[in-house]
Design a binder for these strands. Structure first.
Ligand SMILES: [Mn+2]
Ligand SMILES: [Mn+2]
Ligand SMILES: [Zn+2]
Ligand SMILES: [Zn+2]
Lengths: 126, 126
DNA sequence: TTTATAATGCGACCTTGTTGCGATAATATT
DNA sequence: AATATTATCGCAACAAGGTCGCATTATAAA
């Protein structure tokens, strides 16, 4: 199952990269020139996640947001992120606050996935 | 707009209280004796949230979980919680880890809502 | 007991995301 | 360059989770 370079994958990745933020499906669809099918966008994004190029966060609005991985050298290890995400209630921007957060869990608890979101007003909107 | 004491509100609150955890809509519906309509359950839960008796978290599965508030003296102030929630990937339990977490945000950012969820395996399932 | 209206049940609806399948196009093979 | 292979795409249908409108019910005040 070897990945192919397609128009869709290139364009979606470019949108994510130039944005620099975490984007939801509809944000991506807006910022894209050609119109790519909804299902395709989701499939491309999920493939990116599997390949460790992108990570996904569930916002406090229940939506999925996707952001390019940094300091997350490919698929060589477990693809986990423990940084906070900030979602602006005014402009909608979702950003990765690239400072890792150490969370102490009670005895016997094993963390697998971190989904940390704070919403409020960003520097531009406060 | 004064609240009324109904069969539904009493029973739903009792389920939340005796569980001690954060419950999703379907968990509540299972643990309830009589069958209360889906819409009613959501309306009751949202009313509880408005009244500061319960708080809501969006899980990393995208679902809403509701838990009784502790140390959250009613509606006298902004209803905010900054504790971590743990969701077990095996047994499905979602619990509030009642230790407040101070998260430093960049200059100019204002936090309104904390939605912090870690999923993994709980003490019973690890 | 009567009255006002908050809360309920039901159905319709919405949004977000996934899946099946036949068609298309990227890559490998000849 | 032509062909074969199959990953990816587009479309439509579906599913889950949650909300809303409206007529009906039931709580609590008068
Ligand atoms: Mn991130
Ligand atoms: Mn909680
Ligand atoms: Zn903003
Ligand atoms: Zn467990």
């Amino acid at each position: 199952m070897k990945r192919r370079n397609t128009h869709s994958t290139a364009e979606i990745f470019e949108v994510l990269k130039s944005s620099g933020n975490a984007l939801s499906h509809d944000m991506i669809q807006e910022n894209i020139g050609s119109d790519i099918d909804r299902a395709t966008i989701y499939r491309v994004l999920n493939r990116f996640c599997e390949d460790g190029k992108v990570h996904k966060v569930i916002g406090d609005d229940g939506k999925q947001y996707f952001a390019i991985c940094h300091n997350c050298s490919g698929k060589k290890q477990v693809h986990s992120h423990n940084h906070i995400h900030f979602r602006c209630l005014h402009c909608g921007k979702v950003e990765c606050l690239e400072r890792d957060l150490a969370v102490p869990l009670p005895e016997g608890y094993v963390a697998k996935v971190h989904n940390l979101v704070i919403s409020g007003f960003c520097n531009n909107c406060s």
